[in-house]
Measured scan of single mutants.
Amino acid sequence: MDLSALRVEEVQNVINAMQKILECPICLELIKEPVSTKCDHIFCKFCMLKLLNQKKGPSQCPLCKNDITKRSLQESTRFSQLVEELLKIICAFQLDTGLE
């Protein structure tokens, strides 16, 4: 393996790690329209609304089981920016390397 191939692999590993961190624990995809709970867990807005609409009253956070309500959800613009920038990095990496 030459040096450039090694560096490509390192970049790919970093991108994969970042994708894992920014993954919704419910749908296991890159978070879309991130919302945070009072317990500071981040999920896709759609995933949380789907969870909350399944029953009346408070639901439980899928990660820590604390009570959550629609009102307690906060849009997470910082995470939204992180996801947007990661998508740009992924696109640039794919253009530069031809890898997916």
Rank of each mutant, 00 (worst) to 15 (best):
K20R: 11
A17S: 08
I42P: 03
C44S: 00
E100K: 09
L49P: 07
T69S: 06
E9G: 05
P62R: 11
V8I: 04
K20N: 12
V11A: 15
L86Q: 11
T97P: 01
P62H: 10
C91P: 04
K56N: 05
C47P: 01
F93L: 03
K32Q: 06
E33V: 10
I90M: 06
E100Q: 09
D2H: 07
N66D: 14
L99M: 11
S76N: 11
D2E: 06
H41Q: 02
R71W: 13
Q94K: 11
E10V: 07
F79P: 03
C39P: 01
Q60K: 12
N53D: 04
S72T: 12
V11I: 15
P62T: 11
R7S: 08
L63V: 05
I15F: 04
N66P: 02
K50E: 15
Q12H: 14
A5S: 12
V14G: 09
C47R: 00
K65M: 12
L99F: 03
L82P: 00
L73R: 04
K65P: 09
G57A: 06
F79Y: 12
N13H: 09
R7C: 13
A5T: 13
A5D: 13
Q94E: 07
C61P: 01
N16I: 04
S36Y: 05
D96Y: 00
V83D: 01
E85D: 14
V11P: 02
I89S: 08
V35F: 09
C61W: 01
K50R: 09
E85V: 07
I15P: 01
K70P: 08
C61S: 02
P58S: 07
E9Q: 12
V35A: 06
V8G: 06
I26A: 09
K38E: 13
N53I: 10
C24Y: 00
E85G: 04
E84K: 11
Q19E: 14
C47W: 02
D67Y: 12
L28Q: 14
C64F: 00
E100V: 08
K32N: 09
E10K: 08
L49Q: 15
F43C: 05
L73V: 10
I26M: 05
G98R: 06
P58H: 10
K65R: 00
H41D: 06
T37S: 07
I89V: 10
L99W: 13
V35D: 01
C64G: 01
K32E: 15
A17P: 03
S4C: 10
D40E: 11
